[in-house]
Design a protein around this nucleic acid. Sequence first.
DNA 1: TGGCATTTACGAACAACTTCGTACATTTGA
DNA 2: TCAAATGTACGAAGTTGTTCGTAAATGCCA
Lengths: 131, 131
Amino acid sequence: MKKEQNIKPTESELEILNILWSKGPSTVKDVHEQLAATKNVGYTTTLKIMQIMLDKQLVTRDASSKIHIYQSAVDKTQAQGQMVQRLIETVFNGSAMQLVMQALGNHNTSATELAMIQEYLDKQTKQGKKK
Amino acid sequence: MKKEQNIKPTESELEILNILWSKGPSTVKDVHEQLAATKNVGYTTTLKIMQIMLDKQLVTRDASSKIHIYQSAVDKTQAQGQMVQRLIETVFNGSAMQLVMQALGNHNTSATELAMIQEYLDKQTKQGKKK
DNA sequence: TGGCATTTACGAACAACTTCGTACATTTGA
DNA sequence: TCAAATGTACGAAGTTGTTCGTAAATGCCA
């Protein structure tokens, strides 16, 4: 019974979501410090984007204290899924397999990772066709 | 010795690239008909975007006749690779494996496709780590 | 309590993208 | 040949996203 929303964050919003996903509920200051570590951006810019995200309901905030605490309002896995799905549709003609090949082929994946994927696939195929 | 360009088409541009990739060199009219099949958009809009793409060198055109013929100036595989790479970095924390899991888990891939991926992985792992 | 630092709010400016109206050029066929 | 159809060029307007300056509110501490 989850609310199904269509998540389409902008670049900047996604950066912030990533921070919130990894750090959990955070102040603007926290997020901005994290952001500023790799990017030259003003504090009020970060604030503004987070306010916009609040508007779009990408985040929620606790304003009970005067220092507001923000947290992601979207599920990480669900968001990842939607973005992958979108890429599959728009770039790989609907074929997940083609995307997987690309990802594995180009990315120089480690042997360990490949093994883990194989294991995963074995489980999938052994338990028969789903659907 | 290839020219390394960073490809970042917009949504609309990507739609057009997909058409050019599948149909090969095409006129604006061709592209627009294709586009209009699924999307309500004016002819001059399509034309304009294609002109902008020419500007950005996403496409080239043959204007020797008065009816210009456009074709993609970017390699499909390379573009796909860059977009996958970007997704891995921005959403999956650099891990191709995580993306693959997502793609396979969510997407209800067919048994046949899974088998093909396994075969591919077998070849990869058997020939040992590259690089 | 007064003043400095921190935080939030707001709006303006700019840039990128999308859309389309209009004008102009070319082709075609009656 | 000339009018309709087809095609290209251009610019303007609307939308969205990004950035930041400035102001106002609040917190802190000497």
